[in-house]
């Protein structure tokens, strides 16, 4: 490592694109985490509401993954005795955690649809599955977008943990630069924080825009559904 004077702006500027480039990795992981969490979460929520005997089982799974810190989940998946590519480890580790949170959101959204609607659908000759698929979920999912957006933002922030499974994300790359330029720690961490802030802001406003687009006139909106605990989204 060549010696450098402190606050070498040229070096810092040359390194910055590499830092910003890791946003792509973050986006890949995020896409995977949210999709995995969506399908598993929706499955768990449906099971919890309509699953009869499996309802408790779904509730248990959901509580289990909510109680374990995401970093521990990531490491547990990483050390599973299979050769899983790092990207997939990150997606599974954070995805399990996200699925637990998303299932809570979907459960509340499903329960917000009046039971009368299912009765009415059944009266029209639909099966229970048809009623859930065509009547309940289209309404529930629209209502879930608001809280789902918060979960999305919280997963953006949790991508800062994925270096533990061998993916050099923003924070790790910032640490490369700090090591190479011997200092500027506060400045680099501030830059990372600002990038994350922009990401969460940009991501959430996009989803709120989407919510507006998907809104059916006359349909009750966001604020109607909140996770049953009333928690401030993390």
């Amino acid at each position: 490592m060549p010696p450098l004077s402190e606050m070498n702006w040229d070096v810092l500027l040359a390194e910055l694109p590499i830092l910003v480039g890791s946003v792509v990795v973050v986006a890949e992981v995020l896409f995977g985490v949210m999709s995995f969490g969506f399908f598993l979460g929706l499955g768990l929520a449906t099971m919890e509401v309509y699953g009869g005997v499996f309802s408790n089982c779904a509730a248990f799974i959901q509580r289990f993954f909510r109680a374990i810190p995401p970093i521990v989940l990531l490491l547990l998946v990483f050390y599973l005795p299979f050769d899983i590519p790092p990207l997939l480890v990150a997606i599974l580790g954070l995805g399990l955690c996200s699925a637990a949170y998303q299932s809570q959101i979907f459960r509340a959204a499903i329960q917000s649809v009046r039971t009368g609607e299912i009765v009415a659908a059944r009266a029209l000759g639909m099966t229970k599955l048809q009623a859930v698929l065509h009547i309940v979920l289209p309404q529930a999912l629209r209502r879930a977008i608001g809280p789902w957006t918060n979960e999305f933002a919280s997963e953006i922030k949790d991508t800062s943990l994925i270096y533990v499974v061998g993916i050099p994300e923003l924070l790790r790359r910032a640490r490369y630069i700090i090591a190479y330029t011997r200092g500027n720690a506060l400045l680099m961490y501030a830059i990372v924080a600002v990038i994350y802030f922009i990401l969460t802001r940009f991501g959430t406003s996009f989803l709120y825009w989407l919510e507006g687009r998907l809104w059916v006139p006359g349909f009750e909106r966001r604020g109607q559904v909140r996770a049953s605990t009333g928690a401030v989204p993390r």
């Binding site: 933002a153 922030k157 949790d158 991508t159 924070l171 720690a185 924080a193 994350y196 969460t200």
Partner: peptide
């Protein structure tokens, strides 16, 4: 604070 990760805040 809500827009940035806890880990980044800790490092900072």
């Amino acid at each position: 604070i809500r827009g940035t990760p806890l880990l980044v805040q800790l490092f900072a």
